[in-house]
Simulated assay, not measured.
Amino acid sequence: MVRCLIVDDEEPARELIKLHLSGLEDFGVVASLGNALDAFVFLQKNPVDLVFLDIQMPKVSGLELARSLQSSPKIILTTAYREYAADAFEMEIFDYLVKPITQERFMKAMAKFMHYWNGKAEIKETNIDNDNPYMFFKVGREQVKILLKDIIYIEGLADYIKVHTMDKSYIASEKLGYMEQTLPSNSFVRIHKSFIIALDKITSFNTDQVMLNDKPLPLGRLFKVVFFKIIQAKTKG
Rank of each mutant, 00 (worst) to 15 (best):
I171Q: 08
L63W: 06
K168G: 01
R3L: 03
L222Q: 09
K99G: 07
I146S: 03
K145D: 05
E83Q: 14
Y170Q: 00
F52K: 02
L148E: 10
M114T: 06
V226T: 12
F40R: 12
F227T: 04
A111D: 11
G220R: 05
K224A: 11
L50I: 04
K168W: 00
R3Y: 06
P47N: 03
L50Y: 01
R141D: 12
G34K: 10
A88C: 13
Q44D: 08
M211E: 09
K224T: 09
G177C: 05
D8T: 04
F40L: 15
E180G: 07
V189W: 05
K149Q: 14
Y134K: 15
L33T: 04
N118I: 14
A172E: 01
N118Q: 15
L77N: 06
R105Y: 08
Q232T: 13
K145C: 13
L176D: 02
Y84M: 05
A36T: 08
D129T: 14
N186I: 08
M166W: 00
A31F: 12
I76S: 04
V29L: 11
I171R: 09
P218M: 12
K162Q: 06
K215S: 10
F223H: 11
G34M: 09
D38A: 15
W117Y: 13
L97D: 01
L21I: 05
P100V: 07
R67Q: 13
D208F: 12
E25G: 07
